[in-house]
Design a binder for these strands. Structure first.
Lengths: 195, 195
DNA sequence: TCACTATGCAACAGATTGTTCTATAAGTTA
DNA sequence: TAACTTATAGAACAATCTGTTGCATAGTGA
């Protein structure tokens, strides 16, 4: 009952090909991803690519899986709700502006609109992130900092959504000052109870 | 000095081809839009399509222009800020759920990420809509209903962004109850002044 | 060492792409 | 109406791309 060893050649081929695919997705969009273009970019032969991924959609899916499963860091409170929210948004903005994620997510959104597999992947990713971020609100509630009719989920979306809106739709810049102002803007909602 | 008459054959060809292109974008994504597929869907011959749009990107661009220039309705206040915001979101959600716009915008976002022309188009569209919606806030301010440090633009994004987030990223449903709850959630901000 | 198998390469038929030419039909002008 | 101008459809084409296969090679595990 030994553990199944995986041929390192397969691992290498997959890694190289998916990295090339991600570069193509990022720079040219999913429409430019073909067995041929991935072969040219990765050095993997076309026949090998067909053997691993008979359809381009299989390749795209694996590439999206790769980028939508980043490590989720443990929640450590910064001490206050405002500080935690600022920290959350800083991380998000940094991921969007300085990592592959920012370049890939628009393509994943487009893929999700026409492909159920991609949609499931994207929604699962977002759901997972929301659940992690919910710890922020629950911790604040325990400290008595958060006491609102707004559900943690809706409140988090209120915080996070403008970042994506500015980035994906408006093309507005996002800097530390804006993040700080944004957190301050919503802070009156921490304790308001609407009726 | 007569007005230049446009050959109706050209107008027809363009209309038919762009309609077909939009259907392909909506159903299959921009990657599936080719002169051939548009020809098959529209009945326009391939050679004619090449004459009108030498590159696929030209065709895509014209299609996106078509869909991103919808008529902007005059602002008529519903009487209160809450009612105006509810009205604004209802219209947006309806456009997203019941018209082409909802199916096309994910593709336009993806195109914008790799193509400056598409990006300009999208950002201009969003900017224009924000400016129209700003009338809501300005009217509320005149009535004394809105008095906040949050700029009208930032406030509107706070209102609008969660709709797009739920639709594009989370895949969450959006119904009238949610819209109403959302407007109520942010209503404490109408008059709050943060410090 | 030996069996196994993933890879690269060449070759291939079939489809797609981009271009050009010609006949025809539709539009415009007088 | 007749004479013109022009847009389109269709065919044909070389070039490229797609998907598949067979085979030699080289890396892997026992």
């Amino acid at each position: 009952m030994t553990i199944q060893e995986i041929d390192p050649r397969i691992t290498q081929t997959r890694a190289k090909a998916l990295e090339a695919a991600l570069m193509l997705i990022r720079d040219c969009g999913i429409g430019q991803v073909t067995h041929q273009s991935v072969s040219a970019k990765s050095g993997i032969s076309r026949s090998t690519l067909y053997r691993h991924w008979p359809e381009v959609s299989d390749l795209l899916n694996d590439a999206f899986v790769l980028v939508s499963k980043p490590p989720i860091s443990e929640f450590v409170s910064q001490g206050s709700l405002k500080a935690d929210l600022y920290h959350l948004l800083s991380g998000l903005v940094s991921a969007i502006q300085n990592t592959e994620w920012g370049k890939i997510v628009p393509q994943l959104i487009a893929a999700a609109a026409v492909n159920k597999g991609s949609a499931d992947l994207l929604h699962e990713f977002v759901q997972e992130r929301l659940e992690v971020a919910e710890q922020i609100i629950l911790a604040a509630r325990r400290r008595g900092e958060y006491n609102s009719d707004i559900t943690p989920e809706n409140f988090l979306i209120l915080i996070i959504a403008p970042v994506y809106y500015r980035f994906l739709l408006a093309g507005f810049p996002i800097d530390d000052d804006w993040i700080e102002g944004h957190v301050n803007s919503v802070s009156p909602l921490f304790k308001n109870r609407s009726r």
